[in-house]
Design a binder for these strands. Structure first.
Length: 286
DNA sequence: CCCCAGGTCGTCA
DNA sequence: TGACGACATGGG
């Protein structure tokens, strides 16, 4: 892999265990959309990004080496050696086949606050609608960002989102989740629920803390731990995991508890990443 | 009209 | 603990 600046853009060349489509469409992140010219356009940490992949060249438009070091290197989790992780996970045929499809996934280091709200919204919901709702939140309450001739919006801060009433949220399509979002937003805004403290806790402490909040159960807590706090040992136990254990591994009636034990014994500290590989491959029908 | 969606909550045994 | 329906909304 090689990094260089060219024409005001940053180029990543050569193998880097990175596939933009699977990264942005595996359901870890809801803020990047595909453009007509087959790039991905979105906002993270309040900064706009346009990025595309042609052959083995990835281009981050308008990004210099300083921006890369400051923001995007960490966002795309470049401290992590995915080659080594995949080698560690390649212990059975199911996983090896899944990784042929989804091996380019990286667990993005997203903002905790954004993940918290996004995955509360994700419950009993489908990915296109989750994206639409979050887009609505950003357009209505987030800061406007003009970029490359397009208008983008940052994810609203707790203060900004705190201006929304429950009724306004309902209008954006949150449905019964309006109450959950309003409650936790208010707590974060007023400091009753500290994301800073949360992020310092052990995984099991943080999980209990999350679950004690209204509208956050085990699955949503796990997604927040994995995607918002990069606790890669956490495997969100959803309907798809059940499906995968049944169809691919021939293990039936996997309860939540059983599922965690299975993940722990099979994939250990990388259970969350393993789950993403399997989840994406399964959703792609492979 | 039905069913489902990266679930959670309250209730009842 | 474990099972089961309700819950808003929109798409198929």
């Amino acid at each position: 892999m090689q990094l260089r600046e060219e024409g005001g853009n940053l180029l990543i060349e050569g193998a880097c265990e990175m596939d933009l489509q699977s990264i942005f469409e595996c359901g870890q992140c809801f803020r990047f959309k595909k453009t007509d010219d087959k790039a991905y356009l979105g906002v993270a940490y309040g900064r706009p990004l346009k990025i595309d992949q042609r052959g083995d060249v990835i281009t981050l438009y308008g990004v210099n080496m300083h921006d890369w070091e400051q923001t995007w290197k960490s966002y795309f989790d470049f401290e992590c050696d995915y080659g080594a992780i995949k080698q560690r996970l390649a212990t059975d045929e199911v996983m090896i086949k899944a990784m042929e499809v989804s091996g380019g996934i990286r667990i993005l280091r997203q903002e905790l606050w954004e993940c918290l709200i996004s995955f509360i919204i994700s419950q009993n919901n489908n990915i296109p609608r989750i994206k639409k709702i979050i887009e609505g939140l950003c357009e209505n309450y987030g800061k406007k960002i003009e970029f490359e001739g397009e208008t983008l919006y940052a994810f609203p801060t707790p203060q900004e989102l705190g201006r929304a009433t429950k009724e306004e949220l309902a209008l954006l399509g949150l449905g019964y989740r309006d109450e959950y979002v309003a409650l936790i937003t208010n707590k974060v805004k007023t400091g009753k629920f500290s994301l800073e403290e949360l992020s310092k806790m052990s995984t099991s402490q943080a999980r209990s803390m999350l679950i004690s909040q209204r509208g956050i159960g085990g699955k949503v807590a796990d997604c927040i731990l994995l995607f918002g706090m990069h606790r890669t040992e956490v495997c969100p136990h959803d309907v798809w995991v059940k499906r995968i254990f049944k169809e691919k591994y021939g293990i039936e009636n996997v309860t939540e508890k059983k599922g965690y034990a299975l993940c722990e014994s099979k994939w250990g500290e990388y259970s969350g990443i393993a789950q993403q590989y399997l989840f994406y491959a399964q959703r792609e029908g492979k």
